[in-house]
Design a protein around this nucleic acid. Structure first.
Lengths: 181, 181
DNA sequence: CTTAGTGCAAAACCTTTGCAGGTTG
DNA sequence: CAACCTGCAAAGGTTTTGCACTAAG
């Protein structure tokens, strides 16, 4: 199978990211004399196999389907650990279950999020200049680690949906007041 | 009792904000033929009595203490309604319970948040220029309503605490390896 | 009067925890 | 071989829901 150049570069970066993450985890665990269990590394590998957001239960499900046998609590514990090691970031929108996202080796944010206030869907947006500016925010007595910018609003799909819904509601209301008369 | 000029101005603004919010709620409820119950207005009044973040259960407790009799689910339902009407904003940090914040009449954000990744405490920061810039972010097909910027890091208190803790851990580790020898 | 809103209690949900047994260092 | 991690089941805490009753339009 031949891969395109961009695909090759992509894969190379993936591998590099994963390798770096493994190293970070190694160091983190050794420093704290914690154990380097196969579960933790399997979870790490899966987490770094994509830059998309993921849910804990979906992550567990995928791992299970792929033949790893581990319990949901192990996944929760590992993600908690990764969070403390700075390997993942946690997001929570509305009161959906928490979403997580890998953190690529020490690099500051390179994107922010558009969140639909109606359906809850999240889209990532890249804006290098803005990200650069935000990563230079500093405050006395506060040691900045990272930041999150969420822009809330209506996605294209929900704009359409709500417009239709409102039209229907208006029609229903009109019918009702006609009936009264 | 005499009030300072700034206190007077403050109160005037509070009153204006509350009045505007009441009007918004009136309109919102009428449009949808929903009922204007005393509970909803009592909750609205409390929500607009401060610009601080609040928790649902604390809000319910305060209302109860002040003689309003209403159940927790009513408060949840009302806040959900306010959320849809754009009268409050929801925030969620770590997996603490959700925090809410009133939205002052159509005005865009005027502050952002510093969140301590260790203790979870949140501090509001005003930066007019930055807020103005962020409120001008626009995207095709996405109808922006508002935004939230969170800067995560360590608060002064946790920086101190963790430093001390690490020193202790190092000492303990040293003692342990001494013992082995 | 009709329907929506409230109150109460119970459910649902995600996440954490306690404990027994197995694995890592 | 000691300590820590995993797995399981059960608890925890917030938010939602079902149902009967009350009140708003």
């Amino acid at each position: 199978m031949r891969l395109s150049l961009t695909a090759k570069l992509h894969n190379m970066n993936e591998d590099k990211n994963l390798a770096a993450a493994r190293l970070t985890l190694d160091t983190y665990l050794k420093e704290r004399r914690m154990r380097r269990t196969p579960e933790r590394y399997a979870i790490l590998e899966k987490v770094f196999s994509t830059d998309a957001h993921f849910y804990i239960d979906a992550l567990h499900e995928v791992l299970t389907l792929e033949g790893h046998r581990m319990s949901l609590s192990t996944v929760y514990a590992a993600i908690q650990l990764f969070l403390e090691a700075g390997l993942v970031r946690r997001h929570q929108f509305g009161n959906q279950p928490a979403q997580y996202e890998r953190v690529v080796a020490g690099e500051m944010e390179n994107h922010h999020h558009l969140v639909c206030t109606s359906c809850g869907r999240v889209r990532a947006v890249k804006d290098a200049e803005l990200m650069h500016q935000l990563s230079n925010l500093h405050y006395p007595t506060f040691k900045t680690q990272f930041f999150s910018l969420y822009v809330y609003g209506l996605c294209a799909w929900c704009q359409k949906r709500l417009k239709k819904q409102n039209a229907e509601a208006a029609a229903a209301a009109a019918a009702k007041s006609d009936k009264k008369k």
